[in-house]
């Protein structure tokens, strides 16, 4: 079967040769790779459930805190979303942003532990994006409120019962002023 043989030779042979000659060890700045990662397709879809980040927001009135709410409410299924699903794709992009933020937080804590951290968490680009995401969602759900707070938490799937998950708080923001 020449085409299939050629296919698997390319699939397994090229990474093998790269590893053998250590071509993959060339020093390329991580941030550049991150920004250009569309050129390096990762086909690892739905790899494992693991930790799923979630964003919660709450209203703050005169120092009193309201109940926590999901910042990214689920959307309804509809046949028209086959062609255009802007809200769904926004939620997917927001979920991906939360994953990146979680990863940046872990990197930041790692650097902090080694005394190499440069600046505060609030200076991270992903922190600022998540803060704007929280404020944007809060303004939509509470148009008249003036102050809010957000937190990042993770849902961790139970090993024995996959339908149950534990919620861990990861980061709590200061109280933020909401500009209309």
């Amino acid at each position: 079967m020449p085409p299939l043989l050629l296919y698997f030779t390319l699939l397994l042979g090229v990474p093998g040769l790269l590893a053998f000659f250590k071509i993959g060890k060339a020093q390329v700045p991580g941030k550049t790779i991150h920004l250009l990662r569309a050129f390096f397709p990762s086909w690892r879809f739905f790899e494992d459930f693991g930790e799923v980040p979630a964003l919660q927001i709450r209203m703050v009135i005169s120092g009193e805190f309201g109940p926590w709410e999901q910042a990214l409410p689920k959307t309804r299924r509809s046949p028209t979303t086959l062609l255009l699903h802007a809200q769904g794709n926004f939620l997917l992009a927001a979920g991906s942003l939360l994953q990146q933020f979680l990863s940046d937080l872990e990197d930041h804590q790692d650097l902090q532990a080694r005394g190499l951290a440069n600046g505060e968490i609030s200076e991270l680009v992903t922190y600022q994006l998540v803060q704007d995401l929280a404020l944007d969602q809060f303004r939509r759900s509470h148009p008249k409120a003036r102050h809010c707070q957000f937190k990042l938490c993770t849902l961790i799937q139970d090993e024995e019962n996959p339908l149950l998950s534990r919620v861990d708080d990861v980061l709590l923001s200061p109280v933020l002023a909401v500009n209309s």
Partner: peptide
């Protein structure tokens, strides 16, 4: 786990 964590209701 994935089925319960979708963007849909």
């Amino acid at each position: 786990g994935f089925l319960n964590a979708t963007i849909h209701d």
